[in-house]
Design a protein around this nucleic acid. Structure first.
Length: 661
RNA sequence: GCGCCUGUAGCUCAGCUGGAUAGAGCAUCGGACUUCGAAUCCGGCGGUCGCAGGUUCGAAUCCUGCCGGGCGCGCCA
């Protein structure tokens, strides 16, 4: 699929070849990936390139001189006549002014390609595994998770549009102390139906709910305190299946008693208890519903339990991986009992640590300094249980074994201390492969893992921070935010949340103002852009009603305004923006393209109200302008689709909005 | 202490592989609809790109140092 910049780039590449053939350039010069800019100054033409600089550097020549000599060659290479004028400017810029057919072709591209316009082949079919969200299934998603989710999902869409094969994956942390704690918290509520009912009623009133006192089984001091825990307990109690457990009354900390009670969990481990499993499954269902509300889909939910060999049909991949690492001296036995559990976080009733832990050599000198760890980390605890880190090693080993070309993880910024460790893993697993005679190892050592950090979200309401007490469990959930910014139109909450998250690049902190996200003006970018789309759709509708609908193959010669040329150039840029957004993993670029393009259109439209109306009495003018409008609408619609935001043909009237007249 | 992110207009932020006179929105001041959606547009005001060096034809962008802000450094996940 061809687009304007690509065609111009081909002309410039051919001109470079001609330059070599004519001896203007030495044969040794490689034709570079020709950079094409949109100049800031209108006098600088439609497109500009610093090709002469790049070539001059390689050929050790004078850029300005080389640019002069390239001009006739570009003319010669431009046999299709896209370029009307070439000007050498400044120290050697080549400013191109496109011919009518040249810039018109940007519009006909869109009309021809329809909803495929903007798709490019930058990825050349490379396969990418993109892991994102991976929120612990111990509670509902909060706003920060939401940002990672939207960024990840938008990146999936953008990468696919840019010609990558993408697998979207969610890693479920369903093993360990955190899920055990969730299970214990749910269990505490299940044991006491009276208090549960009272507490659930109290939650609705906003009164504080007393936790520590009066439970037959005390509520864990560091348990999960949100209302959702009691609600889950209510559901599980109602669903039944735990009557025997309650009757047998095992104390939560008594692993042996639980082991005797549950055939599926002979060890009795707290994170394997039936109630724990049901609890995180309920949480995961809730998370999936929230993701669904944002139109986020995954190709796979990857269970951490499967790496432990705990899911049906799985084997202990972690043990196997640790064994391989130890065999290649990437792991070693450390001193037993050197570090105690922090009593706050310790899983209850664990055996004293007497055996030797296995440590990962993340500090070895042959790991590149940038990803070398400051300290060797435990992967198998003294009691033999793997750490979270060990599971992540096995998980990334699994990803690598699946034959992807690239691995990308999206992480919350609060995990940034973990990034180098994670990158270290992939490097070492690559080295391990090389050590074991696997040729693919080198590629992973060189290329490694790519990690995108998503910075924090500060939630505001009308400019003031929204207080979130994490200890009380009363934090604002993603669901709350979606609900609060939902106005009247279907999908409006999703649209506002998605677009707002994409108005900042990932590594910048984001203020999310709930009040602004509901607003119907320029400070709410999603509205501005959707209004632009609705305006375009409305023009087309009106033209059709007036019997002046666009006919195929209309001539564009009647487009003579600077605004029209600029809009066509904006449309032409979309495929470039998609390619760059994919390459740099920066989906916000698409959002900015939308804002700029809509701003340009609103300006054109307003100026035209007096002297350049879109629907006129002159047929040729009307047809040409409707072509522009059609192409713009299509391009904007496509870009919105990449962001997962709806492109409405009409804006819903808001109850609290001033009526338009 | 070590490491990561960050510092651009009063505020919130863009700024492509280093490229031409650093751009938007908000705020503020002033304008624009009898007709395609004024939920919009046009204009004014506003800058030592944190500071100091370096690299080169050219630095907000790359390198070094310093200063300020945020975060991370568990046999938690």
């Amino acid at each position: 699929m061809s687009h304007l910049h690509q065609r111009i780039r081909r002309v410039l590449a051919r001109a470079t070849e001609l330059a070599v053939a004519d001896g203007v350039l030495p044969a040794a010069v490689d034709a570079p990936d020709v950079p094409i800019d949109r100049p800031k100054q209108a006098e600088h033409g439609d497109l500009a390139t610093n090709l002469a600089f790049v070539l001059a550097k390689a050929a050790k020549g004078n850029p300005r001189q080389l640019a002069e000599r390239l001009v006739p060659l570009i003319r010669r290479a431009d046999d299709a006549g896209w370029i009307e004028a070439i000007e050498v400017a400044g120290p050697g810029f080549l400013n191109l002014r496109l011919s009518g057919p040249g810039w018109h072709s940007a519009l006909t591209d869109v009309i021809e390609q329809g909803d495929r316009y903007g798709h490019v082949d930058a990825g050349r079919g490379a396969s990418v595994l993109l892991e994102f969200v991976s929120a612990n299934p111990t509670g509902p998603m909060h706003v920060g998770h939401g940002r990672g989710a939207v960024l990840g999902d938008t990146l999936v869409r953008v990468l696919r549009a840019a010609g990558y094969q993408v697998a979207a994956e969610y890693y479920i942390n369903n093993v360990g102390n955190q899920v055990a704690k969730l299970g214990e918290s749910v269990w505490a509520w299940m044991r006491d139906p009276m208090r549960r009912a009272a507490a659930l009623a109290t939650w609705g009133t906003g009164e504080p709910v007393p936790f520590p006192d009066g439970f037959p089984t005390a509520f864990p001091a560091d348990g999960y305190r949100g209302a959702y825990v009691a609600e889950t307990a209510e559901e599980l109690a109602a669903a039944g299946g735990f009557a025997a457990h309650v009757a047998a009354s095992p104390v939560w900390t008594d692993d042996a008693a639980w082991g005797a009670l549950e055939a599926a969990n002979p060890s009795g481990r707290a994170d394997h208890r039936a109630v724990t499993v049901q609890a995180w499954q309920a949480m995961l269902a809730c998370i999936r519903a929230d993701l669904d509300a944002l139109d986020i889909r995954f190709d796979r939910f990857f269970s951490e339990r499967s790496l432990h060999g705990l899911d049906a049909g799985t084997v202990d991949a972690i043990g196997a991986c640790c064994g391989r690492l130890a065999a290649a001296d990437w792991a070693y036995r450390g001193d037993p009992g050197k570090t105690e559990y922090d009593t706050d976080d310790a899983p209850t009733a664990i055996a004293p640590i007497v055996a030797q832990p296995l440590l990962f050599r993340g500090t070895r000198e042959d790991i590149p300094k940038a990803i070398r760890d400051g300290k060797d980390r435990v992967i198998l605890r003294g009691d033999g249980r793997p750490t979270y880190f060990a599971a992540d090693i096995a998980y990334h080993e699994d990803k690598m074994a699946r034959g992807f070309d690239q691995l990308v993880d999206v992480l919350g910024a609060d995990h940034h201390g973990y990034v180098s460790r994670l990158k270290g893993i992939v490097h070492v697993l690559g080295a391990l492969r090389s050590h074991e005679g696997d040729a693919s190892g080198q590629r992973w050592q060189d290329q490694g893992l790519e990690v995108l950090l998503v910075q924090m979200v500060a939630l505001l309401r009308d400019g003031k921070p929204v207080q979130m007490g994490k200890r009380s469990g009363e934090f604002v959930t993603l669901r709350d935010v979606i609900d609060e910014v939902t106005t009247g139109a279907p999908g409006s909450g999703r649209d506002a949340v998605r677009f707002t998250f994409l108005t900042r690049k990932a590594d910048a902190q984001l203020d999310f103002d709930l009040e602004v996200a509901r607003r119907t003006s320029m400070d709410n970018p999603v509205y501005y852009v959707q209004y632009g789309h609705a305006r375009l759709a409305s023009v087309l509708e009106r033209a059709a009603t007036a019997g002046k609908a666009l006919r195929p193959g209309a001539s564009l010669d009647a487009l003579r305004l600077d605004d029209e040329r600029a809009l066509a150039m904006a449309v032409a840029e979309l495929p470039e923006v998609v390619a760059r957004a994919a390459r740099n993993r920066e989906p916000h670029l698409v959002a900015y393209w939308l804002l700029e393009t809509c701003r340009a259109f609103h300006g054109y439209y307003s100026r035209g109200k007096t002297d350049a109306r879109l629907i006129t009495d002159d047929d040729a003018t009307t047809q040409a302008r409707l072509t522009l409008v059609t192409a713009l609408r299509q391009a904007i619609s496509n870009a919105l689709a990449l962001l997962g935001v709806t492109a409405p043909d009409h804006m819903a009237e808001l109850p609290d909005a001033e009526p338009a007249h």
